[in-house]
Design a protein around this nucleic acid. Structure first.
Length: 947
RNA sequence: GCCGGGGUGGCGGAAUGGUAGACGCUCAGCGCUUAAAACGCUGUGAGUAAGUAAUUGCUCGUGUGGGUUCGAGUCCCACCCCCGGCACCA
């Protein structure tokens, strides 16, 4: 019989639906497995899924878990509040709810067509009033605990649509509907105090070993923790005062560079603030500040690259050395970062350097790199004091052919520049000239540059038998001519002289200082921004910069603090289609939470839900709905008209699946304790820094107030790799390169589509679609289908071994989401049994392994060959490890790691016998040689080490 | 710039420190066929030597250069390139 995927797939989809096969049957005595997909959400035309790769994977996983006897929860839900749904509704002139209903129906149909086993009885929809009752309830808890507050925040505003835009990524961009340039406009907002949880959101990432590193890294970056010091610099010159009564506070992560601070730079925002509280700023400064703010509003922070500034006429006193340094207004200092003011250290910060260079402000180097020899002959001797020496490093250029003078040391195989110690009676220039002369003989040199750059090298001096601490100062010379003296024999024996072009230096240098030499040669403006050892910093000299940070902060009475990049979460939207924020504004009582009994606050039916021209939510115009009474004082009150963002519903949906019908609480405690946490969560990487942080934040809040029992909501996270188009680009209607899964199902079948999407490559990688490659998995299914005609009474030993190997590998690979290698192993099995013979029973065992991947054709074969009940609720096969290894194996014989022979070995043979056999096989290589060693890897390999 | 993940045939990709290239695609040859498709079989990293030939053997080969090891795609060091996150974040 022919393999007719259309007939088989239709038949079983109908049948499974009728049986209600995938209803979760809760059984507290069994182990549980909670498998979760990301919410699909309605976009322009239907629910946006792209390719159902992630859904196929969770389906395969949960099918296997169910066969393995777990109570499996694998539900499906809809995140249907949000901008895409609303835009779709406006465009098509239908009510958002209608649009959402249609889209969900369409999506369900698509999923069924492809054989998904979601438990539709556990469906959750964020727009369902019973669902958002609890979303509002959580908001009220946040409000009551002081974690929700109101504030005026700038939002993205489209001047031509006259509307606020919910998309937070639009800074400096264009409106997604009309293409106008987006502006910032302050608007009253509800804000959630997520920063309160910043430290825990960061620290607890350590307890998520089953999350991919790149997602955790994204979250760490997003939270952006940095430690530093708040330091006050007394101000002089305000309104003619000279007494330092006022002060400017700066935040710095590098207080160790304080001796290098040569000016203070303040943001235009801070300048304006000072002016507003009475600073009589020079008129140019005030105008410039306003200009800078305007410019930034237009171009965005990223759009401004040129640094600008102006001297304010004020001075600040550096508290570490009491030096008076000028205060500058600078456009590269941002008002909302740190304190809006910085101490500028041009020698150790690239931005400060750039600014200082432009305005001719001084720079002072105070941190120098330090290298300690920790291995080799010159390893530093523990516990011994260091003898300090001044030293030089000479960079000598020959202008004739643009090469540099290098020294290659014969004994230590060191390659570097001319270096040497400074003798007591000479200065560094004299020392450098002397060393060049002694080591290389060149005598006519011109000093080009005394860089002021130095590095410290700590090592053990073998000849002098002491620990040395040398400070190498870099000097640049040019050859005036190539005349040279002869060098004495002693020096000659030590090293060779090599002239290298600048481009070769990087590869040539073997000494660690080489990196810095190259930096200095390539970039005359090179500045050192790393950690090192302090210099020109009085009592802190020679201290490690990391240690000095705290010490210097203490010395000036600064505060050591932690700051985060993460900002509080602007939680309100001026939109119709979202959960209303359950707050009533009362003139007497202020903002008051809607009492629990009055939840949910439903959206009123309206004629128009387009955004208003004022930026307020469309709800604001519905006076019937807005006007209400205050639940506290019964006086007149007005409802909050902002709605929640799309993220709100998806912050806790996984909890609702555990107990979807509960009307008493968001989830019953005993159910939460059984099901939580989510065992496997599969989703796209685009949620790394938003949804996944917001959900973790809410979860931790719920934990703190006893509503959930785990510290983290998702114990294992897997990110799906995108399916790219055949041309390697993203699939997009714009490029016309979209492969529609529906079409693939029609021509190739759902089973083939499922198998192919899993076989393409590693699950987490982005891989291009290839219709050519799909023929491979289709052929595989056809061969599996045809195999049913040739099953026999008995399975050959080889086939038995392969079967058990396959059972083991497929099970392990599904567990690790390595579907591509699982399928590959099933293909190996098929290749094997087509040549051997297979019993009906073993054939059906194999079909059970295939069932999660190709549920329809497996079910058909199963039923045709007398399988009892649905294959998908039959037990998962168990591998017999004893049967995996066959009677004999092939052992590889190597000589010095090179393969020279392969010998068949019986399992019963002893090592001595095997070695004897192996020696025989490689006789001709062993002849006349002495075998030094025999390395034996049981059942795999023998390596003879010969001389 | 900082951080994270990578780099393997014509292609997608396999490989607990132990036979690199599994499996699939492609391509070539053969079989079946009146023919084609489909299907089946065989071969398919590069170079090289011997042989009429089937074949047999050797060398090289996992981004580059070093190192550790009996043995390195895998571990260590330096560098190059690609992808992702953050970024005038002080």
């Amino acid at each position: 019989m022919k393999y007719d995927h259309r007939r088989i797939e239709k038949k079983w989809q109908r049948e499974w639906d009728a049986q209600g096969l995938y209803r979760t049957r809760e059984d507290a005595s069994k182990k549980k497995c909670f498998v979760l997909d990301m919410f699909p959400y309605p976009s322009g035309d239907g629910l946006h899924v792209g390719h159902p790769k992630g859904y196929i994977a969770t389906d395969i996983y949960s099918r296997m878990k169910r066969m393995q006897g777990y109570t499996v929860l694998h539900p499906m839900g809809w995140d249907a509040f949000g901008l895409p749904a609303e835009n779709f509704a406006i465009k098509n002139k239908v009510h958002p709810r209608k649009a959402v209903e249609q889209n969900i129906a369409r999506f369900k149909e698509q999923l069924s067509k492809i054989g998904f086993n979601y438990d539709w009885g556990r469906e959750v929809n964020t727009t369902d009033p019973e669902y958002y009752r609890w979303t509002q309830w959580i908001f009220i808890k946040l409000f009551e605990k002081g974690l929700a507050y109101q504030s005026y925040e700038p939002i993205n505003w489209c001047p031509s649509c006259q509307t606020g835009l919910a998309n937070e990524d639009l800074d400096g961009g264009v409106c997604e509907r009309c293409g106008s340039i987006v502006e910032k406009r302050p608007m009253r907002q509800w804000v959630l105090r997520i920063t309160e949880y910043a430290d825990r959101l960061l620290a607890d990432l350590q307890d998520l070993p089953q999350w991919p590193e790149h997602i955790k890294e994204s979250q760490r970056n997003w939270i952006g923790r940095s430690e530093g010091a708040l330091i006050k610099f007394p101000l002089f010159g305000i309104s003619g005062q000279t007494d330092g009564k006022h002060a400017v506070e700066v935040f710095t992560t590098r207080p160790d560079t304080m001796f290098g601070a040569t000016f203070i730079a303040i943001s235009p925002e801070l300048a304006q603030k000072w002016i507003s509280i009475g600073w009589k700023a020079p008129s140019g400064v005030a105008t410039l500040a306003t200009q800078m703010i305007e410019e930034r509003k237009k171009a965005g922070v990223k759009g401004i690259t040129e640094k600008k500034g102006s001297d304010t006429g004020l001075f600040a006193e550096n508290p570490i050395n009491h030096e008076k340094i000028p205060v500058w207004l600078a456009n590269y200092v941002l008002g909302d970062i740190g304190t809006g003011a910085i101490m500028a250290v041009p020698a150790h910060d690239e931005r400060d350097f750039e600014f200082a260079k432009k305005y001719n402000l001084p720079m002072r180097r105070v941190v120098e790199p330090k290298f300690t020899a920790t291995s080799g002959d010159s390893m530093v001797k523990e516990g011994e004091d260091f003898v300090k020496r001044d030293a030089i490093c000479a960079v000598v250029r020959n202008p004739k052919d643009d090469t540099y003078l290098c020294v290659s040391w014969k004994q230590a195989s060191m390659k570097g520049l001319v270096t040497g110690g400074v003798e007591p009676e000479e200065d560094i220039v004299q020392a450098a000239r002397r060393e060049i002369l002694e080591e290389t003989g060149y005598k006519n040199l011109r000093l080009v540059r005394n860089t002021g750059f130095a590095l410290h090298s700590l090592f053990y001096h073998r000849l002098k038998k002491q620990n040395r601490w040398a400070r190498f100062q870099y000097l640049f010379f040019e050859l005036e001519d190539e005349s040279r003296n002869s060098i004495d024999e002693h020096e000659e024996a030590l090293h060779d002289i090599v002239w290298q072009p600048a481009s070769k230096l990087k590869d040539f240098f073997s000494v660690i200082e080489g990196t810095f030499s190259v930096h200095l040669i390539e970039n005359p403006d090179y500045i050192f921004t790393g950690d090192g050892v302090l210099h020109a910093s009085n009592e802190f000299d020679d201290m490690d910069s990391v240690v000095a940070r705290r010490k210097m902060t203490d010395a000036v009475g600064g505060t050591w603090t932690t700051t985060y990049r993460l900002k509080d979460w602007v939680f309100s939207r001026q939109r119709y289609w979202g959960e209303p924020i359950p707050i009533i504004h009362c003139e007497q009582c202020g903002p008051v939470a809607v009492p629990e009994k009055d939840l949910p606050v439903l959206l009123p039916d309206v004629e128009k839900y387009e955004p208003t021209g004022t930026g307020e939510s469309p709800l604001a115009g519905i006076t019937d709905w807005v006007n209400t009474t205050c639940p506290v004082c019964s006086g007149p009150g007005k409802r909050e008209t902002n709605t929640m963002p799309q993220w709100a519903g998806s912050c806790w949906y996984y909890l609702r699946y555990m107990d979807p019908q509960n009307s008493e609480s968001l989830v019953a405690s005993e159910r939460e304790k059984y099901w939580a946490p989510v065992d496997v969560y599969v989703g796209g990487a685009e949620h790394a820094t938003r949804h996944l942080i917001y959900a973790r934040f809410w979860h931790k809040f719920l934990l703190d107030h006893g509503f959930v029992s785990t510290a983290e909501p998702f114990s294992r996270l897997i990110s799906v790799g995108l399916i790219m188009a055949e041309d390697g680009r993203k699939m997009s209607k714009r490029y016309g390169n979209v492969i529609n899964p529906d079409d693939v199902v029609e021509t190739w079948g759902a089973d083939t589509l499922r198998l192919y999407e899993m076989f393409m490559g590693p699950f987490t990688d982005a891989i291009a679609w290839s219709t050519d490659n799909m023929i491979g998995v289709r052929r595989f299914l056809e061969r599996v289908w045809r195999l049913q005609d040739s099953v026999s009474d008995a399975t050959t030993p080889n086939a038995t071994a392969e079967l058990h190997r396959t059972i083991k590998k497929v099970g392990e690979d599904i567990e690790h989401f390595k579907f591509n290698t699982a399928i590959s192993q099933m293909m190996i099995f098929l290749n094997c049994v087509e040549k051997e013979s297979l019993s009906r029973e073993d054939y059906l065992t194999f079909i059970r392994l295939l069932a999660p991947f190709a549920p329809h054709v497996s079910e058909e074969i199963w039923s045709m060959h007398g399988g009892q009940g649905s294959i998908h609720i039959n037990p998962w096969p168990i591998a017999d490890e004893g049967k995996i290894v066959m009677g004999d194996v092939v052992v590889v014989v190597q000589i010095n790691g090179k393969i020279r022979a392969q010998i068949p070995v019986d399992l019963g043979m002893t090592d001595t016998e095997i070695i004897k056999k192996a020696r025989l096989a490689v006789e001709k290589w062993l002849e006349g040689k002495e075998v030094m060693r025999e390395v034996i890897v049981p059942k795999k390999l023998i390596n003879f080490v010969i001389r």
